[in-house]
């Protein structure tokens, strides 16, 4: 069954076209990495799937439903913690905020919700930091908090925007572990990435976005094959760091 079906999607901000005629299907159990340079349109692609960016043309079907409303089936992991950090919030409070919509805004948290938060904390290895302010965590630990927030709601599809950008090795490993468990449990994943690092073994398919179009689609290419690709320079312009894209 197709979980995500993008048909001829076009997205433009003001006059500038960011995605042109993109079609993509993701089926249950796939782990799809969306790769591309900065400004290629890869983030816009997932943001349009999440309905955060309106389509100018085309359509996106989620779980077979064009008028998809069951957002609790999707877990979203943004690039970084939200701007609303004016007031302190504990790790457990941030993770708990992932359960509010599923529970209903009028219901107070129940024992089951607290258990879900505890399970998600354990899955990312942050159980001992539950009561700490998120701002006291390292960048990698904050990123793990965000994946825990998404996992707490037990989604079927996880969408991640550059989850491992600037994350230390220990957190990347913890992150890969949590993602691996999710996939093993039958989950579907779409992730935007600059480099795959320890996530690479989990990836079942790579989609390379280039100038708002899908330039390449297939398995994780071996570095040699990738270097042989004539489009390579455009797809990933910062040459010195290019090996990092596929994991050193």
């Amino acid at each position: 069954m197709s979980i995500v079906e993008v048909k001829n999607a076009v997205v433009g901000y003001d006059e500038r076209i960011v995605l042109r005629d993109v079609s993509l299907t993701v089926t249950r159990g796939e782990v799809v990495a969306i790769l591309g340079a900065n400004g290629s349109g890869k983030s816009t692609l997932i943001r349009s799937i999440l309905r955060l960016v309106p389509l100018s043309a085309g359509e996106i079907t989620l779980f077979g439903d064009k008028r998809f409303k069951s957002w609790e089936r999707i877990g979203y992991v943004p690039q970084r913690i939200g701007a609303g950090a004016g007031v302190p919030a504990t790790v457990a409070e941030v993770i708990g905020s992932g359960l509010v919509a599923r529970r209903g805004i009028l219901r107070p948290p129940r024992a089951a919700d607290r258990a879900a938060v505890a399970t998600a904390l354990a899955a990312v290895g942050l159980s001992d930091r539950a009561g700490d302010p998120v701002t006291s965590l390292s960048g990698g630990q904050q990123q793990r908090t965000l994946i825990a927030r998404a996992l707490a709601g037990r989604p079927e599809l996880l969408i991640l925007d550059e989850p491992t950008a600037g994350v230390d090795a220990a957190s990347q490993a913890a992150f890969a572990g949590a993602l691996g468990e999710f996939v093993a449990g039958g989950g579907t994943v779409m992730l935007v990435a600059h480099e795959l690092g320890p996530l690479q073994p989990l990836i079942t398919r790579c989609v390379v976005v280039h100038h708002g179009e899908i330039a390449h689609e297939g398995g994780v290419p071996a570095p040699a094959g990738h270097h042989a690709d004539p489009g390579h320079d455009h797809v990933h312009p910062h040459a010195p760091a290019e090996q990092g894209m596929w994991g050193a």
């Binding site: 955060l52 409303k69 609790e72 943004p78 939200g82 905020s97 992932g98 509010v100 919509a101 599923r102």
Partner: peptide, 8 residues
């Protein structure tokens, strides 16, 4: 943004 995606 997260709140919107989570369906609130």
């Amino acid at each position: 943004e997260y709140a919107r995606v989570s369906g609130l």
